[in-house]
Design a protein around this nucleic acid. Structure first.
Lengths: 177, 177
DNA sequence: GCGCAATACATCGGTGTCGAAGTATGGTGC
DNA sequence: GCACCATACTTCGACACCGATGTATTGCGC
């Protein structure tokens, strides 16, 4: 998720670590802050893997800055991660939103639609948080107001996302089935 | 989050690891599966900390089962974690839902309301995923349909949750301010 | 009688993440 | 002139988490 965000931001324009950090903080920071000591090693990993290159510039205001540029391999890897996301990227909203934030970098509408369809399939299968044996419980069946809240909120999210997914798939020229 | 779920489930009734695993899978598994090799060490941690006790029973169907019971310290720790959740528990929906799933174990309505108010405060402060400088961008201002989706979905979730939060706070006898 | 799934738990190496602290520079307030 | 903050990046130890693999038992289908 973090690596995807790094690749995604650098795909637009070269950045140095500090600005990248602020970009990532804006994207996911209010929900899940990223520590500096997580970001910089992640950058190193990606650099070591040849996905991004670093050129040192004298710091405009402070310490020397490492301007990071996505390599061609990095660009390919970004497209690979976007077109073949892991299951966690599909099911976990935090990860999913990161995929969505950069999905435009996948220039093939069919490939974009394929990713959206995976999320659609996930949302369409009946799943709950609370069960009576194997039977998913509906909000109305719960006494607990807090658990009822979970289902109420999840349902609202799901509904909004299903609508958006179907609309967007249609506008991508995807044939509904 | 995992530890909270373990404590929460065991607060109701003693369970052995395998059943606990299925309970947790039902609660959060469709979004974020928990590996066996994560659950059992977590159980050991909690046991070592004196939060739960283990009694070995001959397995009804297979290997001997370790029936886990929450100790009095465990019960206190659960209440502590519920009444003073970390910031991540408030901001990250995955964690927040786990808190909500067990918030009823906090028997004081005022304490429950205090937790809900923290989430309310978080949702009420203006935050986006995408910015133009410091100014949060609205869905309508985005060209990217996928980023627009993120904002659309997040807004729907936020709206539903705010409604639910205010209703529930009112029914808990909490005075709106 | 054999394979296979489900039950039930344990171990282990690799790695991602975090908190805390450290280094260094330049600008601002007092 | 000095503290303090923002910029910009690094190092380190601790540890939660994961995938793979192992062990053992019971019950089912064929």
């Amino acid at each position: 998720m973090l690596e995807l965000a790094i690749l995604g931001f650098l795909c637009d324009v070269p950045l140095h670590g500090y600005v990248l950090r602020r970009h990532i903080a804006a994207l996911t920071g209010h929900v899940r802050p990223v520590a500096e000591s997580t970001l910089y090693p992640a950058i190193k990993r990606l650099e070591k893997a040849g996905l991004l290159a670093r050129t040192t510039e004298p710091g405009a205001v402070a310490a020397p800055r490492h301007v990071l540029t996505l390599t061609e391999e990095g660009r390919q890897e970004l497209r690979r991660r976007l077109s073949e996301p892991g299951q966690r990227e599909i099911t976990d909203e935090n990860h999913w939103f990161t995929v969505l934030a950069f999905l435009r970098h996948l220039d093939d509408p069919a490939a974009q639609a394929a990713v959206l369809r995976r999320r659609l399939a996930f949302l369409e299968e009946p799943a709950s948080f609370f069960y009576d044996g194997d039977r998913p419980l509906r909000a109305e069946e719960l006494d607990d107001p807090f658990r009822r809240g979970v289902l109420t909120i999840a349902r609202a999210t799901s509904r909004a996302e299903l609508t958006w997914l179907r609309d967007t798939l249609a506008s991508l020229g995807d044939v509904a089935r």
